[in-house]
Design a protein around this nucleic acid. Structure first.
Length: 103
DNA sequence: ATTTTGACTTAAG
DNA sequence: GCTTAAGCCAAAA
């Protein structure tokens, strides 16, 4: 465990339903710190349990797929999201259709 | 304990 | 549309 904040991020990430995506800033806000988007990214990077924490459902503010060092990287992440039913617009996820509304 | 770094975001050129 | 700059946060060195 890294910190309470990070744990919260993992918890929220696990709540993201299949076929939906959330932005780093969104998770940060739900965790209590709207400006901790970067910290959210760190939490994903230091992700202790990838199968338990679907970090591939977390994208940048504009839907761009960033990071993801697992498997084949970005391509794999994109493919996974499409397989779950997330709407895609070129190389970016269509947040207008597939962004998780959170609580 | 201090500095550096990074899977962010928004604003400005 | 792309690049640069600045702001904020947490983890790693």
């Amino acid at each position: 465990m890294a910190s309470a904040f990070t744990e919260k991020i993992y918890e929220l990430t696990r709540k993201i339903p299949k076929g939906k995506v959330a932005t780093y800033g969104q998770l940060a806000a739900l965790a209590g710190n709207a400006k901790a988007a970067r910290a959210v990214g760190m939490a994903m990077r230091t992700n202790p349990d990838i199968p338990a924490t679907p970090c591939h459902r977390v994208v940048a503010s504009d839907g761009s797929l960033t990071g993801y060092s697992a498997g084949y990287g970005i391509p794999s992440k994109k493919k996974m999201l499409i397989a779950e039913g997330v709407a895609f617009k070129g190389e970016k996820a269509d947040l207008s259709l597939s962004q998780w509304k959170g609580k």
